[in-house]
Amino acid sequence: MLRILLVGVLASLFFSSTFVLNRAMSLEGGHWLWSASLRYFWMLFFLAVWLGVTGKARLGMDALRLFRQHLFFWIVAGSVGFGVFYALITFSSVFTPGWVVAATWQLTILAAPLVLLGFGRRVPLRAVALTLVIFIGVVLVNIEQASVASLSETLWGALPVLVAAFAYPFGNQLVWEARRGEKTWLPTLDHPAMDDAVCRVLLLTLGSLPLWGVLLLVISPPPPSVGQVTQTALVAVCSGVIATSLFLYARHEAKSTAELAAADCTQSMEVVFSLAGETFLLGHVLPGTLGWLGIGLTMLGLILYVKVQARS
C-alpha cells in the first residue's frame, strides 16, 4: 500500500503541470482545444521514442496489434478516459484558475468508488461517506471563487470538471477490468503489453485520437501559436507520459479494491502542487479563508479515506 501511495503522490506532482500550464495558455489567448488535443499528438511521439530507446519497440508493435484486434474497446476507453476527461479539464481552465480546477477535480475521489460499484466491485461504505468531506472542501473552494468571479464563470469552470471526474476513472477501470478478464461483456486482454504502463498509455492515447479529430473538425479553432505548441509538449512529457505512466503503474499494481481506491485518491495532492505552481509561476494571489478551509477539508478527507480503505 505504501509503495502505491508514494508512486501516486509523485504522479500527482507531474499531473499538476496540466492545471498550471493550461491556465497559462488560456491567459495567453490559446484555444482550449489545441491545449487539449496537441498534448495527445505530442504523447504519441514521446511514447514511441521512449519505447524505442528503452528497447521495447517490439512490445510497442505488439500493443499496436492489440489495438487493431480490439479497436472498438480502445476507442471507447481512450475517448472517455483520455478524451472526454481532458477536453473538459482544459475547457474549464478558460473560466477559472488552475488550482481551483485541481481542487474541483478531487471530486474524482467521490466518483471513483461509484464507478467501482458500477462495475460490481466492493467499496466500504465508510470510505464512501468520507468522500463527502472532500466534496464539502471542493464546494467551499468554488464558493470562494464565485465571490471573485461571476456565478456563470464559476459554473462553467466547475461543471465540466464534475463530468471529467467520472470519465477518467471509468476509462481506466475499463482497462483494469479487461486486463483481468472477469467481465464477459469486455474483451480479455491477457497480453504482455498490458503489463507495461507505457504501452497502456499508448493504447489509450491511440483510442482518443478519433475524438480529437471530430472536435477539431467541428469547432475549427484558429491555429495555435508557437508558444502553445511548446507548452503542450511540456504538458505531454510531464503529465501525459510521466504522470500518467506512474499513475497507471500504481493503479495496476493494486491487488484489491482498497489499493485501487488508495491510488485514485493520491490525486488530491494535485491541489497543493497546482496552488504552489500558480503562485510562483503566474503570480496568482493565495486563496482566502474559505479557499484554505476547502483545501484543508480536501486533504483531511484524503487522509481519512486512505486510513479506512487500508483497514478494510
Rank of each mutant, 00 (worst) to 15 (best):
Gln228Val: 13
Leu248Asp: 02
Leu110Ala: 11
Phe280Leu: 15
Ser152Phe: 12
Glu144Pro: 04
Val101Glu: 05
Pro97Phe: 07
Ser220Asp: 15
Leu6Met: 15
Ser256Ala: 10
Val241Met: 02
Trp50Ala: 13
Leu234Cys: 08
Arg311Lys: 11
Gly296Glu: 09
Val123Asn: 04
Asp196Tyr: 06
Leu217His: 13
Leu71Val: 00
Trp50Phe: 14
Ala233Met: 11
Ile295Glu: 02
Tyr305Ile: 01
Gly296Pro: 09
Val101Gly: 03
Leu290Gln: 10
Val237Glu: 09
Met1Ala: 13
Trp32Phe: 15
Arg179Leu: 11
His191Asp: 05
Leu286Gly: 06
Ser274His: 10
Ser92Glu: 02
Pro187Asn: 01
Pro169Ser: 07
Phe41Val: 13
Leu125Lys: 12
Val229Trp: 06
Phe85Gly: 03
Leu162Met: 15
Leu33Asp: 07
Gln69Glu: 15
Phe247Pro: 04
Arg68Glu: 14
Pro224Cys: 12
Val49Ala: 12
Leu174Cys: 01
Pro169His: 04
Trp74Asp: 00
Val148Lys: 11
Gly8Ala: 10
Ala178Leu: 03
Leu203Cys: 04
Ser225Ile: 10
Leu203Lys: 03
Gln228Trp: 08
Gly120Leu: 00
Ile136Met: 12
Arg23Val: 04
Leu248Phe: 12
Leu217Pro: 09
Ser37Arg: 00
Ile136Asn: 03
Gly294Ser: 05
Leu140Ala: 07
Pro287Lys: 02
Ser79Arg: 05
Ser239Cys: 13
Leu114Gln: 06
Ser147Ile: 02
Gln228Ile: 12
Val214Trp: 14
Ser92Gln: 01
Leu189Phe: 05
Ala261Arg: 06
His191Ala: 03
Ala310Val: 11
Gly98Tyr: 02
Ala258Trp: 02
Tyr168Asn: 10
Pro223Thr: 11
Lys255Ala: 14
Tyr168His: 12
Leu202Ala: 12
Pro224Ala: 14
Met43Asn: 11
Glu153His: 06
Pro187Ile: 02
